[in-house]
Structures are given as structure tokens and as C-alpha cells.
Simulated scan of single mutants.
Amino acid sequence: MDTTDIFLYAGYLLIVVGAVFAILMPLINSFGDPKSLLKTAIGVIVIAALFGIAYSSASGDVAAKYMADPFNITPEGAKMVGGVLLTVYALFILAILGIVVTELNKLIK
């Protein structure tokens, strides 16, 4: 094992630790204010609904060359990836629209 592998594993560990803290710390802080948990739950439900819509509209078509080795992509896997991509696209567009609306609101005030 050379230093590159050690640094990669250290990076993976830091990503996991950061993700755990990013999830747990807001939960711990929100026990004092339960209404913030409700807002978080509503956000998660909205994103899950958006993913459900995107997943149902995604195509599961896979080209024959990607079904064989070394890719082995199944139609279910392609549909999942398509759903995730459509969800990311929709969230990106919503973020851009939110930025534009916020800036126009600042300009008006």
C-alpha cells in the first residue's frame, strides 16, 4: 500500500465523517425547535415526490453494447440513473429560478 492509497482511504473516511456530522448535527440542534424538523420533513417529502415523478418518466432503454461486459447495465439500473438525472436537472432549474427571483426581489426593494 503506497501513500496514494492511504490518502484515498483517508479522504473516504473524511467524507463519511463529514456526511455523518452534516446529518446528525442539525438533528441534534433541532430537538430544541421541533418546527424545524417539520420543515425538513416537508423538504425531504417534496424531493422524494420529485424523484418519484422523474423515475416514472425516465426511460429504461439500454443499448445492447452496454448490456454486455464490462458495463452490465440493466434496464432497472438505467431507469434509476435516468430518474436521478432528471431530479438533478429539475433541482438545478429550481435553484436558478430561485436565484433570479431573489435578485429581482432585492432589485425592486
Score class of each variant (00 low, 15 high):
Pro26Phe: 04
Ala19Val: 05
Leu97Thr: 05
Leu13Cys: 07
Ser30Val: 01
Val44Pro: 00
Ala49Ile: 14
Lys109Tyr: 10
Leu91Glu: 01
Leu85Asp: 12
Phe51Lys: 01
Thr87Asn: 04
Leu8Gly: 06
Met25Ile: 15
Met1Lys: 07
Tyr89Arg: 06
Gly11Leu: 08
Ala90Pro: 04
Ala95Gln: 05
Ser56Asp: 15
Tyr89Thr: 09
Ile45Phe: 13
Ile93Glu: 08
Tyr66Asn: 13
Val44Tyr: 07
Val16Tyr: 12
Val62Ile: 07
Leu86Ser: 08
Thr74Gly: 10
Thr102Phe: 12
Val100Asn: 01
Leu37Asp: 12
Thr74Pro: 12
Ala54Cys: 14
Ile73Asn: 01
Leu85Asn: 14
Thr3Val: 12
Lys35Asp: 15
Val84Asp: 00
Ile96Val: 15
Tyr55Met: 07
Pro34Thr: 11
Tyr55Ser: 10
Gly18Asn: 10
Val44Asn: 03
Val17Phe: 09
Val88Gly: 10
Ala41Gln: 04
Leu85Trp: 07
Ser30Gly: 10
Thr74Tyr: 12
Phe7Cys: 02
Ala95Val: 03
Leu86His: 05
Gly18Pro: 02
Ala10Arg: 04
Ile28Arg: 13
Val101Ser: 08
Gly82Asp: 06
Asp61Ser: 11
Lys79Met: 03
Asp33Met: 07
Ala41Glu: 01
Phe51Arg: 05
Val88Met: 02
Val84Trp: 00
Ala64Arg: 01
Tyr55Glu: 04
Thr3Ser: 11
Ala10Lys: 10
Ile45Val: 15
Leu38Gly: 01
Asp33Ile: 06
Gly32Val: 04
Gly77Ala: 11
Phe7Tyr: 10
Ile93Thr: 06
Leu24Lys: 02
Ile23Leu: 13
Ala48Ile: 09
Ala68Trp: 09
Asp5Thr: 14
Leu27His: 08
Ile28Ser: 12
Asp69Ala: 14
Pro75Ala: 06
Ala63Glu: 13
Leu37Lys: 06
Val46Arg: 07
Gly11Glu: 01
Glu76Gly: 03
Tyr9Ala: 12
Leu91Tyr: 08
Gly43Met: 09
Ala63Phe: 03
Met80Phe: 14
Val100Thr: 03
Ser59Arg: 02
Ile47Pro: 02
Lys79Asp: 00
Ile23Gln: 00
Thr87Glu: 00
Phe71His: 15
Ala95Pro: 02
Ile53Glu: 03
Met80Leu: 15
Phe21Pro: 11
Leu50Glu: 03
Met25Arg: 15
Gly52Phe: 15
Ile53Ala: 06
Asp2Trp: 00
Met25Trp: 14
Leu24Gly: 06
Phe21Lys: 02
Ile15Val: 15
Ser57Arg: 11
Thr3Arg: 00
Leu91His: 01
Ile53Cys: 10
Tyr55Gln: 11
Tyr9Pro: 00
Phe21Glu: 08
Leu37Tyr: 02
Leu37His: 09
Pro26Val: 07
Ala48Thr: 14
Ile73Gln: 09
Thr102Asp: 13
Pro75Tyr: 10
Leu50Gln: 03
Ala95Leu: 14
Glu76Trp: 05
Lys109Arg: 08
Ala49Trp: 11
Phe71Thr: 08
Ala64Leu: 11
Leu86Phe: 07
Leu13Thr: 12
Lys35Val: 14
Lys39Ala: 05
Ile96Leu: 02
Leu104Pro: 05
Leu86Glu: 04
Ala78His: 08
Ser30Thr: 05
Leu94Glu: 06
Met25Leu: 15
Ile73Lys: 01
Ile28Gly: 08
Phe7Gly: 00
Asn29Pro: 00
Ala63Ile: 13
Ala48Cys: 05
Gly60Phe: 09
Leu27Ala: 11
Asp2Gly: 13
Ala54Ile: 00
